[in-house]
Design a protein around this nucleic acid. Sequence first.
DNA 1: GCGCTCTACTAGCGCGCTCTAGTAGTCGCG
DNA 2: CGCGACTACTAGAGCGCGCTAGTAGAGCGC
Lengths: 348, 348
Amino acid sequence: MSEDGSRAGERRPRRARPTMADVAAKVGVSRALVSLVFRNEPGASKETRDRVFQAAEELGYRPDSAAQMLARSRSKVLGVMLTVRNPFHADLVEGIYPVAEELGYDILLSAAAPTRDERKAVEALLSHRCEALMLLGPKLESRDLAQLAERIPVVVLGRRFPGVEVDSVHTAEAKGVRQVIDHLVELGHADILHIDGGRGAGSVERRRAYRAAMRRHGLADRIRVLPGDHTEESGAQAAATLLADRENLPTAVFASNDRCALGFLDFVWRAGLQVPDDLSVVGFDDSHLAHLSHIDLTTVRQDPDRQAELAVRVVVERLSGERSEARELVLDPKFVARGTTGPPPGRG
Amino acid sequence: MSEDGSRAGERRPRRARPTMADVAAKVGVSRALVSLVFRNEPGASKETRDRVFQAAEELGYRPDSAAQMLARSRSKVLGVMLTVRNPFHADLVEGIYPVAEELGYDILLSAAAPTRDERKAVEALLSHRCEALMLLGPKLESRDLAQLAERIPVVVLGRRFPGVEVDSVHTAEAKGVRQVIDHLVELGHADILHIDGGRGAGSVERRRAYRAAMRRHGLADRIRVLPGDHTEESGAQAAATLLADRENLPTAVFASNDRCALGFLDFVWRAGLQVPDDLSVVGFDDSHLAHLSHIDLTTVRQDPDRQAELAVRVVVERLSGERSEARELVLDPKFVARGTTGPPPGRG
DNA sequence: GCGCTCTACTAGCGCGCTCTAGTAGTCGCG
DNA sequence: CGCGACTACTAGAGCGCGCTAGTAGAGCGC
């Protein structure tokens, strides 16, 4: 790369972005007036407003959010931490934007990834002056979360942190799980296996609820849990394990989430099993993957739009100082029977 | 929600975040010195540095990036526009972070989604003072892109915009496609169908290259293209169409990307076909979905880390004023033969 | 003509930081 | 002892905006 970087920098081929002062000068009014107009505050005549907007348009003026943040104490920015690979997070993000906009907040996204841990993602949001954080299925330790929540309002989505003083919005996992097991039992299943979600969001609750539901149906001795996590890989892994011992196949499999169910399905389809004739499969989330027509996965719907909306409202409410105690919002999930479940083999 | 919002706001239960002045006061030095220390500039003694860092730690001080942006002309922020649902974008984002960090840039993510179009996503990035934009597989019109590129350095990933003066980093689609067809022909295939990628990134090139490669092998009369796009749904759709007329099945299917291939696979697996015995399938991208062990998809690797790295470097180079003409970086793709391709039926 | 209110606008400080142009103090050298 | 060079530090302007406290002028009643 060339050596004349500094000279080139000074040349600044591109004009710096126009400021409020430029707009004001062009219209022939004060900066303050332009500010009023852009904040949509009363105190400017209709004609002036129009002229300001037109001048701004012509100059390509765009309010500088750094300066806005600095000037008002409120930055009006919510920070969202997500895992880019998680499709359910994608659904949540899509639900967050419109509500935030409605309430006048801007959204900043920061991704956690294998090469970028959650702390780093959160750090980035903090230094960008977010007023509050929304954490999508965080895997942080409770201690770290508690510490974070002391500094800044935090809402956690899709995960419970009992004992930590943060707002949280999540699904009543147990209810959904109970409906899954009820549905399967009703169809005639007894050998219902659960693929565990490891450290994933909601896994503990789902596993516990699975055991409880099985016991309630007098199927305590049929309880069978395979280790896994929230990835396709783990579903496939579980399928491989099961197919290695065909004598001992369950008649139904309840995966800890849709991705896991999908991995499982891919594997058994490929192995030539018929779903649901040979085996029923249920997921959890109803991510957009699940209701693709060719998958048509029986699952439990966690309404992401509603979850996102509530989370935004909860955190905004907290920001406006209307509440200081933590709040836990629990949404009812909705069981969705689709094409991957049916009567067990030999009873169809 | 209660009516005393403003009063509550004034009460400010949480202390406002500490500033540089607080740190300076605590150490007993000037703000400027603290600034030096945090920017890691020479001019402060080792002991002072340590004391500053310690004081900052104790106060929980964190530089305010809004103020930083405002004060230096350089914001040191790159804006990334992505589609949250796209797994290949997730791969790219993961590749972007480390390089940006190495070069001292911060990353701001903004998502396009069905409810939030690309213009809006870009607007958000612009008002957050990004110095440059990285657009992942944008679907903008060339005109809009050109207009954008006049205001701010832009690099487009995974897509060509011939005639528009922007930097771009993409794969030599044609090369990859040629290798796909070569591979299939070598295995003995002649009836190779292509599922089109619609308006998706790279689709035009892939379709054209498919036709060209088929002709090169003297298979012009076997060319067959089914409409589709870059989603699982479209792959499944194509599969449904094909299976409706079993007499007329191709022996191999080349999907426009991995997601499409996956949807296709799911459908044909489920229908009881054996892959690759009955049908070979090839994708494009080598997204992390493809190399899941149970999918084991033959595909074309577009190295996302490398693409991400180059894109960041290209845009940073442009920012430092070392170049003003647009640059197009074309990466060689790498064909990856995996388990979804084999000899055509009747020749195995 | 006076005070009053109301609309339409302006002056100017301050948000938390960066950065230029400085000032002390120390050291080495002729 | 004076001078330059270097280290360690500081003063203060200014980045683009929001916002408070103001003003100028019009309209109105008495």
